[in-house]
């Protein structure tokens, strides 16, 4: 049987390579954009940060989509599914490597952002201090900014995981369901099936999220840290339920793409 470590190494390597390609394009895009502003004569100290920031959203989105495509194709390809490893391990390693790959891109984007901001750092600090002098405590202090950035990162992480577990569930449900549909007009039927499955899954997940929010609301008021933690835990529980269902589907119903 294949070990956790070996299968992890394979999936991680593949996703890393894809992400490095995305990041390479990102750097080229930043360079070209900066050159463009330079040619247009609009260049100032702020340009690097602005360009990096505006590209970073596109890059993050692209990275997410790229990983998602790989993440899903892995479930249905012989090259991966022939590997002697349990479905639970398979699912977990796939999710974990996708998460690390995405985190890797996020960290690199943060570093690029920080590096480009450093060029003009003093000016940002000055204007921040100016704002605080003018508006006083209505502007949050540095500690609060870090705190909210961190909690935002945490929410992003959880939402990303939830997104993947949901997409996987939809994908696997549809693949399993298509086994029971007739041969004729399989394209149209598959499309309809996708729509139906997406609708049902989103409704059920939405219902569960509401359940999580309503029940956490009962435990405390909204400013509570506990409240926030419960939210996060609740989302993760929804993810876990989706994961269990997906593993069951892999084990019983989902077939690979027949390539021969």
């Amino acid at each position: 049987m294949t070990s956790f470590k070996d299968f992890f190494k394979i999936l991680m390597g593949q996703k890393f390579r894809q992400m490095n390609f995305v990041l390479l394009i990102n750097i080229i895009a930043i360079a070209v954009s900066v050159l463009w502003t330079l040619i247009n004569g609009d260049f100032n100290n702020n340009t690097f940060f602005q360009v990096a920031l505006s590209w970073s959203f596109i890059v993050m989105l692209w990275a997410f989509l790229r990983i998602t495509v790989t993440h899903e194709s892995i479930y249905t390809r012989d090259s991966y599914r022939l590997v002697p490893i349990s479905d639970t391990k398979f699912y977990c390693i796939n999710l974990l490597t996708s998460f690390i790959a995405m985190a890797y891109v996020a960290v690199v984007e943060f570093v690029i952002g920080a590096a480009t901001a450093a060029i003009n750092w003093q000016e940002y600090v000055d204007s921040f201090n100016m704002m605080r002098m003018m508006y006083g405590t209505r502007v949050p202090d540095a500690g609060m900014i870090v705190e909210s950035l961190l909690s935002m990162a945490l929410v992003m992480m959880v939402v990303t995981i939830l997104a993947w577990t949901t997409v996987s569930l939809i994908h696997l449900l549809t693949r399993a369901g298509s086994n029971f549909m007739p041969y004729r007009r399989s394209r149209i039927i598959n499309f309809v099936l996708y729509v139906v499955v997406i609708y049902i899954v989103l409704r059920v997940v939405g219902f569960m999220m509401n359940l999580v929010m309503n029940s956490t609301d009962m435990f405390g008021n909204s400013s509570d840290v506990w409240h926030f933690v419960l939210y996060i835990v609740g989302f993760l529980v929804v993810s876990a339920i989706e994961a269990v269902l997906s593993v069951y589907l892999m084990n019983r119903w989902v077939e690979t793409v027949s390539e021969s």
Binding site: M1, T2, S73, I74, R77, D78, S79, Y80, L82, V83, P84, I85, V257, E259, S260
Partner: peptide, 14 residues
């Protein structure tokens, strides 16, 4: 476990 005893032709579509 079965997969560790069988070698099947993988057409490398991945």
């Amino acid at each position: 476990e079965r997969k560790s005893h069988v070698s099947y032709m993988d057409h490398l579509g991945a």
